[in-house]
């Protein structure tokens, strides 16, 4: 039975326990403080610092990031609106000349917009009306035999569109007896890098190294990891071993640039058209003190000679351009057919 003394002791212990519980349960005094803020200077400095610490192409693009800070910091005002702050931060990011660098607010997304600064080289209407009037759609692929029946055409508009091996088996089986295959990646702005090897490994007969990756790993603008290998394997079932032409233009970006760079190490694939848009760096993602989001490149993609040209775009093996004075004809497609028939 609990006597009076014990009851007093119990009460004391309870009080001590509750005090201990309250003091130890208050993690806020031990945690680092979060920093939500709408202050333009705090948001500007946070974004500038994140880019300074992690962006991967300062040296390659010969960018003076301190000068960029000086240029835009003077445009800040304590009382500026969200739109005005967005413009300052967005213009600062556009100095990176990189479509993987975006400021994302609930009311707008900033873009460098490289494809709009270069000539357009793709018109889907021309393909559908004058080359593949009865084209077939298999998942994300639009495909058929080109006029003449000896060459096949496959359109893949975005690496964000999911693909399956069953779809690829079906398409490659259908065109297995052709002289050549054209894969049209013009205006393909990228997407999932996992789809790059899924397609390319259909054209590789053995495991092949096609490039390297390096990652920003320190505060110095030229601090990078050792190069990591970029391999393609050979798909173990249905493959296509005849020549392949890949069509590219300035709208071929990111995963499409990765795809295009890899073809440089493969003898049976040529690039036809214009230089790709670039986007060789893998972009990250994060948040500012005011809740807006951002992303920018934090890696580099190198070719087999460890040269970094992917960010500026992978050049074609055969240059061609679309003549907009006659949209009944696709000169880039015609040139690819000519190359495959050689």
């Amino acid at each position: 039975m609990i006597n009076k003394t014990n009851k007093k002791n119990t009460a004391k212990i309870l009080i001590i326990s509750i005090i201990a519980l309250l003091t130890t349960s208050c993690e806020l005094i031990m945690f680092d403080r979060a920093n939500p803020s709408t202050d333009p200077h705090e948001n500007f400095n946070y974004l500038w610092n994140e880019i300074d610490k992690k962006y991967s192409y300062f040296e390659y693009k010969n960018l003076d990031w301190d000068a960029v800070k000086s240029k835009y910091e003077v445009q800040l005002r304590d009382s500026m609106s969200d739109e005005e702050l967005f413009d300052v931060l967005a213009n600062m990011m556009i100095e990176l000349r990189d479509d993987h660098s975006n400021l994302i607010a609930p009311f707008n997304i900033s873009r460098y917009n490289l494809p709009m600064k270069k000539p357009a080289n793709f018109n889907m209407r021309t393909i559908k009306e004058f080359y593949l009037p009865n084209g077939r759609s298999t998942g994300a692929f639009f495909h058929d035999f080109l006029p003449g029946g000896d060459i096949a055409y496959i359109r893949y508009s975005s690496f964000s569109n999911g693909i399956t091996n069953q779809q690829l088996d079906h398409i490659i089986n259908r065109y297995s007896n052709t002289k050549g295959l054209i894969i049209d990646l013009r205006e393909n702005g990228g997407g999932s890098i996992n789809n790059v090897p899924m397609i390319l490994e259909r054209f590789v007969h053995e495991k092949t190294q096609v490039g390297y990756f390096i990652n920003r790993n320190g505060e110095g603008h030229d601090d990078f990891s050792e190069p990591y290998n970029f391999y393609l394997n050979s798909y173990d079932s249905i493959r296509y071993m005849q020549p392949v032409a890949v069509l590219t233009d300035r709208g071929s970006y990111s995963a499409t640039t990765m795809f295009s760079l890899a073809t440089k190490a493969l003898d049976n694939i040529i690039l036809v058209g214009d230089t790709t848009g670039g986007g060789g760096g893998l972009p990250n993602g994060g948040e500012l003190p005011n809740g807006w989001n951002y992303r920018f490149s934090i890696t580099q993609l190198l070719d087999m000679n460890k040269q970094n040209f992917a960010e500026a775009g992978v050049p074609p093996d055969v240059t061609a351009s679309f003549d907009w004075s006659d949209i009944t004809k696709d000169e880039i497609l015609e040139r690819a057919m000519e190359e495959l028939r050689k």
């Binding site: 201990a20 519980l21 090897p197 990756f213 990591y228 391999y231 393609l232 990250n284 890696t299």
Partner: peptide, 29 residues
């Protein structure tokens, strides 16, 4: 009332840039 206080604390956290491209072994990655 019970407590546990860490005396040896280990953690696995991301790299400097949070996201990295390491060896990419095609579709077998």
């Amino acid at each position: 009332f019970g407590f546990d206080a860490g005396i040896i604390n280990m953690n696995l956290r991301p790299s400097y840039s949070y996201l990295s491209m390491l060896e990419f072994n095609g579709s077998e990655t």
